[in-house]
Every structure is written in structure tokens, then in C-alpha cells.
Simulated assay, not measured.
Amino acid sequence: MTDFPEAPIYEHLARVGKALAAPVRLRLLDLLDQGECTVEELARRGGLPLKNTSSHLQQLRAAGLVTSRREGTRMHYALRDDEVSRFLGHFQDFAEQRMGDLREEVERHLGQEGGSGAVTAEELAELVGRGAAVVVDLRSAREFAEGHVPGAISVPSRELEERIAELPWDTTIVAYCQGPYCVVSPRAVRLVNATGRRARSLRGGYVRWKRERGTG
């Protein structure tokens, strides 16, 4: 039992911390930062059992982080607002700045192409502004249609090998995928670089770019 007068306030604050205290729920929030999804879509994209996905989403909704709506027999979930997206970005940055083992794990997971060697949103704007980069969106055609970095061309990752000849030789190719820890763009960068072209990843993918630069 807590016996200080401010205890009820801190108990409410702790509800947000509790909602964020599961890796699965953090992953679901990053997925929802890409756009509204049904429970079924989230379960498939997250590689999770449907029942568990629904339970985690209900906890996120109880903490005021997501909203839901029913359409027929399906429930659709979305981040509550843009403030949640910005909060997630600050939270991830804060954790990486203070936890060396987290930084090491991110670099191990993404490789240098997706970690320390990646282009930031600010660097991308500068490269595009002087015509020194071609931006490639590796997500699906549907995701591209829902929103993308201005000026990007759509080359879904599954089509990259057969379309690699379309990419230029004389300028830097900046490729991006979905969320901040997506491995698709680092792998694509390695593939493109192996052809003799110059390629780099966009740090944090579309989600991080959207958090820093707008809605696309």
C-alpha cells in the first residue's frame, strides 16, 4: 500500500509505464504508427496469435495510447493521435542514448547499413534538396499509396532484384522500409551496393521520417 498523498496521481502515471512494459506492445505501437490496422492484420504483421494481439491492444487502449472502431465484424486500431507517435520517437531516442547495450543490439540487428551508417531525415532533406539522392520506398504498393517520402519511387522489396537495373549509377540511392528496426532496407542496401551503385538506408524507416518531418 502507498501512503503518500500524491499516490493516486502516480498510480495513473504508472498505467502508461505498465502499457509500455511489454516488448510486444511496443512492437504493436510501431506497427500502428504506419497506419490503422485490423486486429487480424496486426497479428499477421507482428507474427502473433490473434487472441494475444487483441488482449495487448486492449491494454494499450486502456492507457490512452490507441483508439478502436468497429467496421462490421472487424475491429480497427490506430494510434490515438500524433502526440503518441512523437512520444514513441522520443522514448526510443532516450533509451538508445542512455543504454549502450541497446545501441549495440540495434547495430547488431540492423548492421552498419541500418545503424550508424544510415542517413538521418535531416541529411536526406539536404541530399534531395541538391539533387544528390534518389529515394526508394521498399514497402508494398498499398503502403506507398497510403503515404511516402515526397519524391520517392516505389520498388517493393520483393521486386528489387528484378528491377535493380532501373536504379541510377551516378547518384546515391537512399532506401527505406517500415519501422525503426525493420531489416528490409539494410538488406536492400547491401544488395544494391554489391552491384557497384552507392546506397544507404534511411535511419528509422518511414515511421521515423514521418515522426520528424510530417505525414508524407
Rank of each mutant, 00 (worst) to 15 (best):
E104D: 09
T172W: 01
A22T: 11
L65E: 10
G196T: 02
T120E: 00
L124K: 09
Y77V: 04
T171I: 01
E83P: 00
R187A: 04
R44E: 12
E41D: 13
V207E: 05
V189G: 01
A188W: 06
E105A: 13
H148Y: 04
D93V: 12
I153W: 06
R27N: 13
E161H: 10
A22D: 14
E6F: 12
G204C: 04
Q112A: 08
V192F: 03
D30V: 05
L48E: 02
C37E: 13
S201G: 02
A152C: 06
A78S: 14
R27A: 09
P8G: 08
G115P: 07
V183F: 01
A95E: 06
A188Y: 06
E159I: 03
F94V: 02
E126V: 14
L32F: 14
G216Q: 00
G111Y: 04
P180D: 05
R139H: 10
E40T: 15
P186A: 00
L28P: 07
G64D: 05
V66G: 06
V84I: 06
Q34D: 13
L50D: 01
Y181I: 11
Q112S: 11
T2G: 15
Q92D: 06
G114P: 07
S55N: 12
L20F: 03
V136S: 08
P156W: 09
G117K: 10
Q34N: 15
V24L: 11
T38M: 04
E71H: 11
L160P: 14
L110N: 07
T2H: 15
E159R: 14
R190A: 07
R45A: 00
G179N: 12
L65D: 12
T2A: 15
L138P: 14
L57C: 12
R74C: 00
T2R: 15
G216D: 00
G129C: 02
D170Q: 09
L202F: 03
L28K: 12
E122I: 06
G89S: 12
R197P: 10
R69Q: 09
Q59L: 06
L28V: 06
K210Q: 11
E41W: 09
